[in-house]
Design a binder for these strands. Structure first.
Lengths: 126, 126, 126, 126
DNA sequence: GTGGTCTAGACCACT
DNA sequence: GTGGTCTAGACCACA
């Protein structure tokens, strides 16, 4: 099952995070055409956000034809191709790294130390 | 001398950009311990923003103990950036990295890609 | 409900008084984890100060991770007040006390007198 | 020799701290009538503050006749009785304790824990 | 309705 | 001249 994750500290609006995660989820194959998404209610409860926040996210994706809502049945991944351009991927990677470096800086941790720590883990897991 | 620049289009708050640039300057060694920053007034004029916007940025960094201010004297890069024990810092580094990898995973970004992005920044700015 | 009061004569900045009262409220258990604080607007009206003054106070506590705010929702007492290890806290307690005793010594105040003063406050407010 | 100590974090102006320390020093017998104080220059260097700050402090004490300046010789403790009332002592103790509790609160340390730590040390030292 | 950002400008305190 | 505080008010974004 696809897992949503809200970062309350990043300052990125909740509805934007939900939208991004669904789009990237489709682009990376974690979510597939026709698959059913959680209902707005269940997702709102799960993420502990207001119902309207989830509705807003689903609505925007519906407008982009990425999602299809069937009255009374649920919300599904649409058949449209989802375009997550290489550029968008790069931007997302970049913005995540920037925030990461900033958070670390508060504790006097340098980017170099972050890289070392990440490499340590990578070696262990791959 | 350290140079500030504001991107008026990015949507990132001005005071946040100032904060990020100072932190970045410290992380990359362009700003050093004890060094004096521009006065709030001169920076406000230089960046063409309101005095309070600069004060807000400096204040946040002061609360985080990254800057030290003395009324009537000026604002300086703090001296006790690293007063935490090595062990503490190792733990913090580890937890920050874990969190970071998890957030990235939601967007289908692998640790390897994160390392590459971080190395890119490091190479470019040091 | 928690009650705020400003002393307009003390010379202590309004925003500082608000900060102190919230911290005190938490320390004495009058404000609890997760509890919602008055909205910035309502508190500004109640204390007859400008909106920005209240925002400034809340913001500082947010930076210190004592409060958590969510745009559009409200401001809450933070939940991760105590995420430091027992050992870390013991060290911190020790160093704070040492510093404190030294400062007091300059004014000829003995540790015993400090203890008495602290106990007075504790007894009165809990 | 009498030791001065500036607390840069308390927000209390430097000149005020110098004044207070001299007054309390006299009241507690650490400074005696006729004793010579450091020259403004040496004290300014020692405390790393502006010369004018020390001058301002000495000047105010001279006006209160607590100090006497002999041109070309130095500054001495005067013969006036220094009145540090019981009330003033209480206020000073109180304000130091308040700041102490506030600083501790940031680290999630309760007044009770401070008292315990102080009592531990007291037992050991007395 | 909630918090967030920014401006313009006044007035204060410290060095 | 340095930073600090506060006000009044506009406009924005999120839930």
């Amino acid at each position: 099952m696809f897992e949503f994750r809200l970062d309350t500290r990043s300052g990125v609006p909740f509805y934007r995070q939900i939208i991004d995660q669904i789009r990237f989820g489709i682009a990376t194959g974690q979510l597939r055409m026709g698959e059913q998404l959680p209902t707005v209610r269940s997702l709102a409860v799960q993420l502990k956000v207001n119902l309207n926040t989830v509705i807003k996210a689903y609505k925007e994706l519906e407008i982009q034809k990425i999602l299809e809502t069937q009255q009374g049945t649920g919300t599904f991944i649409g058949s449209e191709t989802v375009n997550v351009s290489a550029k968008e991927r790069r931007n997302k990677t970049k913005s995540i790294c920037e925030e990461f470096v900033n958070v670390a800086a508060v504790y006097g941790i340098t980017p170099k130390q972050l890289i070392e720590e990440l490499q340590k883990n990578e070696g262990g897991n791959l």
